[in-house]
Simulated assay, not measured.
Amino acid sequence: MLKCGGEWSTVADMVHHNQRQEPNPSIRSNGIKNYFKKMPLVDEDQELVLVLSGLWTMAMSQPNDKELPSLGIFECMASLINKGINNKSWLQKNQNIYIPYYAAHIIGSYTMNNVEFAMKALDCGVLVPLLELLKGQMTWVEQRVAIRAIGHLAIYEKTFKGVAIYEEEIVKLAMKLASTCLEVVYKEFVGVKDLNVRLKYHCDLLTRGVRGV
Rank of each mutant, 00 (worst) to 15 (best):
E157V: 02
E22G: 07
Y98K: 08
L182F: 09
I170G: 03
M112A: 15
M60V: 05
C124G: 01
N34Q: 13
G125D: 04
A121N: 13
N34I: 09
V126K: 08
Q137K: 13
Q21L: 14
S179D: 06
V145I: 05
A78S: 12
V126F: 11
L206V: 11
G125E: 00
N18Q: 09
V185L: 03
T207M: 11
C76N: 04
G209L: 01
K187I: 00
G151K: 02
I165A: 03
Q19H: 14
A103R: 03
G209Q: 03
E116N: 14
L2G: 02
K33Y: 15
Y110G: 11
K176C: 00
E167Y: 12
N196Y: 07
F74W: 12
T139F: 06
R208I: 08
I85V: 15
G6T: 11
V11P: 05
R198E: 01
I107M: 05
L2P: 07
V197F: 00
V145M: 00
I97C: 06
S9Q: 04
K93H: 08
V192F: 08
S179M: 06
I106C: 13
Q46Y: 03
S9D: 06
H202E: 04
L80H: 05
V126S: 09
D194V: 11
S109R: 11
G54C: 09
G125Q: 03
I147E: 08
G162H: 02
L205M: 05
V184S: 00
L205F: 00
K88L: 14
I107C: 04
P129K: 11
N86M: 12
V141W: 06
C124S: 15
V213W: 08
E75Q: 09
H105M: 09
M119C: 12
G136Q: 07
L50F: 10
L71W: 01
K93W: 10
Q46M: 15
I150A: 02
L2T: 02
N94A: 13
F117R: 12
L55V: 06
G151L: 02
L91V: 07
G84Q: 06
E67H: 03
G162C: 04
L48C: 07
A103N: 08
M138S: 12
Q137I: 02
C76D: 03
